[in-house]
Design a protein around this nucleic acid. Sequence first.
DNA 1: CTCCAGGTTCCGG
DNA 2: CCGGAACATGGA
Length: 281
Amino acid sequence: MSRQDLVSIGIHEFNLGLTMESGQLFHWSKVENGYVGLIGTTPIYIEQQGSALLIPKGTEALVRHYFSLDHDLPKIYATFPKDPAMEAALGFCRGMRLVRQPSWECLATFITSSMKQVKHIEQMSAAIRSRYGKPVHFGDQILFSYPEPARLARLEERDLRDCGLGYRAKNLLLTSQMVAAGEVDLRTVAALPDEMALKELCRLAGVGEKVANCVLLFAYERMQAFPIDVWIERVLRGIYFKGKRKVTHGRMKQFSHEYFGPYGGYAQQYLFHHARRRSKP
DNA sequence: CTCCAGGTTCCGG
DNA sequence: CCGGAACATGGA
């Protein structure tokens, strides 16, 4: 890949760095002035230059779709509640977009995410890809696609534990087998309404409400999905339920759904990233 | 060494 | 519906 093979496309209201570091994606590597990684099986170098993006020729449509450059952010921001915490998160995260990830790699990666720091999730993803994914040559380096369900389905639990998954190994193995066997069809999920899609995903091993919501949000364009993890729970308890005792999970769920509106997923992602970035500079 | 991380599952009130 | 405990691993 040489500079001549790159083209520049115009963008509006997009911050690549924020989006890459936001905890949605776990396989991109930072290089020079940009990032290298795969969109599905297509190798990509991407670099932001102000209001333009430098990307490989021929990947324009793919990149626009993956990074949801069609999302109308001003319209989305207009639906955010007007409170100090939300304003602060918006001020910090403006331009961050929810990505449209391939459903399987999003699902599989978030199964491995439970009780793990982002850094660890990246390490597990890299191990799984390099051992069981398909090599894709890109310039002088080799990238690895995320292995298909059928590939992981015929591994031993031991193999995945060797990738650092711990108890998550059994969950990923079982889920791979269920998906490979067609017991849950990830394409069919796309056609289901939110509640049914959530229930369908929760049939998979190691997939509870939080992981399912992440998949709905980061792979199925369900922008109302509101994953509640330890960070968001902290924000809700510390700001929106400040001083209240007995704040149950059910109550937080109900509040989030009502308070953050039709683009609650965007609000959630902004609150998440802001909280995480300000506790650890 | 201790603490905690983008949770899920199972079990007893 | 709710709270607790077990479950592995590695970085801070």
